[in-house]
Design a protein around this nucleic acid. Structure first.
Lengths: 346, 346
DNA sequence: ATGAAAGCGCTAACAT
DNA sequence: ATGTTAGCGCTTTCAT
């Protein structure tokens, strides 16, 4: 009936190691947790047995007593969206180096699903969660996040700052984009603004207005159009804006996809870029470098967002409250041929 | 000293519920696991208490005894690569509906890191793993995968078929792409083949050759160039192939990024597409629809790969061996303006 | 139909 | 420096 441990399929336990090393299993526990009060000789013997048997402690059993899992939850609207997958990469990177694993949850842009997955993560006793994007009612989310030992939001914040957030300075981004166009001599600059409800859209609009104001240019409501932030969504908005306002010589777009639809619209009606219309995008996704002409775009360091989110989360988990406030990431304008005549990207 | 449960910050346990319902905690266990031998009255009373207290069983404690975690590991080379993030979305989707969570592991294209994360996943007692891509020594990986209750590979296979795999029929893809060009009347068709070591590259080459052979066209080695499968990587390969072989009227590219570099190369030297050169890409990433002209490309249903991977994995976990073989996903050619004169995408 | 007891593998007091 | 004793919250025998 009895099988030799080496032969058995069963995992090696702390008890097996203790017996083989001729000590109590508490001593083994001390060794694997690097605790004091173990004689060097014993320690070495135990370590040898561990090496021989290939023993590794069960994180499950450990979690049951420590109430920690060394796991964090990552909640994103859509992992196949390059914006979020880059964040995910940044998150995984830093988490892994700190011994944490990442549970990935996709909400499919669905608010109720977001609460559901948080529920699941809570059940699974994750040590903390990182929640990305999705504009919706704050109250239910805030309540859900209160269950966790720690939580961080990316690209979103609560008014009362109860949850640390990693934010992009979109006001600055909008300002830089617009300022660049102003410096090139443009005075009639339109803005395709994305969804009206978008938090970052509102901030980019502020930056746009701020730059215009500084330049002493009147801000006109009819120069601003809203749309769904996709290539298809931008098409109609761009067409109508350009048709109704032939005076516009430049366009700032909420994101690169919309900027691409501007490129297309111009190709259709025979307007040259940047001679007849200068175009600035936002996000600086890979696509921006690949269309022709390549897009001037506001670069958002997405992996950096993920890195910062984890760092902040781990600080909160470890009660290092000093780094649990709001972190602002600064975007940078990358200038390419859609605003300046020469194709810098070769 | 004693705190009322409702007031306490401590999680509600099965014991609390049992006491409040006036039954043994075994009975509560029966109720939450839908086991028989509980009287309707008792069952209802217990369920009421569960609802009142908001009790939810601890998956940790449960895992400790069942040796299952309802968690699967997903190993990808780079989650920020659209190919893998789409797979990840497919994986998460199906896993979630079956009550499984997904631990995300990024290997950064590093083979040793791949083994490391598998080690971690093994420690964490995941119920199974899905490993995507990365061409490397089979032996160490195969050995690592043997530790798991279940494992599935995506876009990769072991010769002995010990591990179920989800594969794309790349021979077919290469065949369809080439056949399409042949049907348009092209007889001199080049192939930019991606990395020489690429498993899928070799298969696409086979499909390319097969189509040529069927059409009675001699396959010429110097019509095939290899390169790193990026826009930058393709640039040199495309230039040299076109410069040395002006007879080529069509180009089949290993992926869409290389196809984009073909578009660029032609723009530089003034060759029109598709009149002077027809171009076919592969993967059908979003970019394919956005460049001009839009790319004819071989569509690979990436989310479907993820869906199938989880389905297969869950079958293996549950010992339903019937669905644990190799699954082949069929790609489809999407025809756009880079091969036919009219811009179908408007 | 219900309960009592044992144990999953580990850590954290408290001994000695 | 080492061992003993309790649990962590649950499922699984085995009784009743």
């Amino acid at each position: 009936m009895h099988q030799d441990i080496a032969m058995s399929r069963r995992r090696v336990t702390i008890d097996d190691v203790a017996k083989l090393a001729g000590v109590s299993y508490q001593t083994v526990s001390r060794v694997i947790n690097n605790q004091p009060h173990v004689s060097p000789a014993t320690k070495q013997r135990v370590q040898e047995v561990i090496a021989e048997t290939g023993y590794r402690p069960s994180p499950i059993a450990r979690s049951l007593v420590t109430a920690r899992t060394a796991t964090i939850g990552l909640v994103v609207p859509d992992i196949s969206n390059p914006f979020f997958s880059a964040i995910a990469r940044g998150v995984e990177q830093v988490a892994y180096t700190h011994g944490y694993s990442v549970l990935l949850c996709n909400t499919g842009e669905d608010a109720s699903r977001e609460l559901e997955v948080l529920h699941t993560l809570d059940e699974r006793y994750v040590d903390g969660v990182i929640v990305c994007g999705l504009r919706e009612d704050d109250a239910p989310l805030q309540q859900a996040l209160a269950h966790f030992r720690a939580a961080v939001m990316v690209n979103r914040r609560f008014a009362d700052e109860t949850v640390p957030a990693i934010l992009v300075d979109d006001v600055l981004g909008g300002y830089l984009a617009t300022q660049h166009l102003l410096q090139l001599g443009h005075t009639a600059i339109g803005f395709i603004a994305g969804p009206t409800t978008s938090y970052s859209g509102i901030k980019r609009l502020q930056g746009y207005e701020q730059a215009l104001t500084e330049a002493g240019i009147e801000r006109r409501d009819d120069w601003v159009h809203y749309c769904i932030p996709t290539v298809a969504g931008g098409e109609a908005a761009v067409h109508s804006l350009l048709a109704n306002h032939p005076e516009l010589s430049a366009l700032f777009c909420y994101n690169d996809l919309i900027a691409v639809s501007a490129l297309r619209a111009c190709a259709t009606v025979g307007r040259r870029i940047p001679e007849d219309l200068a175009v600035v995008g936002y996000d600086d996704i890979m696509l921006a470098t690949l269309v022709s002409p390549p897009l001037t775009s506001c670069h958002v360091p997405r992996m950096e967002l993920g890195n910062q989110a984890v760092s902040t989360l781990l600080n909160c988990i470890n009660d290092e409250a000093d780094r649990c406030g709001e972190t602002v990431i600064t975007p940078e304008l990358v200038i390419r041929a859609s605003t300046v005549g020469v194709d810098l990207a070769v």
